[in-house]
């Protein structure tokens, strides 16, 4: 995993994010590099989606926030 992929993974354990929010946080990174890192996270098959389409990874605070969204 690249460092950027690790960062993305850690972020999505902490909080659920729309893909666009994730992109906004990495505007300084070249688009192709971001897409490669995103692909690495995808390939691990750990991503989940909440009811409003946000990505998150179970095992951290993001999971509870995503579950609350479902309750709404």
């Amino acid at each position: 995993m690249s460092g950027l992929a690790d960062t993305i993974e850690a972020t999505l354990v902490r909080e659920p994010l729309q893909f666009a929010e994730l992109v906004d946080r990495h505007r300084a990174v070249a688009w192709r590099d971001f897409l490669h890192a995103w692909g690495e996270v995808r390939e691990k098959d750990i991503l989940k989606r909440d009811d409003i389409g946000r990505y998150y990874i179970p095992g951290g605070a993001a999971e509870a926030v995503a579950a609350e969204t479902r309750a709404i």
């Binding site: 729309q18 893909f19 666009a20 992109v23 688009w31 192709r32 897409l35 490669h36 995103w38 692909g39 989606r49 389409g53 990505y55």
Partner: peptide
């Protein structure tokens, strides 16, 4: 595929 310049199109899209 990232050799192609596809964008993120909309605010709520799940990806490019």
């Amino acid at each position: 595929l990232t050799a192609l310049p596809f964008p993120l199109m909309h605010v709520y899209d799940g990806g490019p």
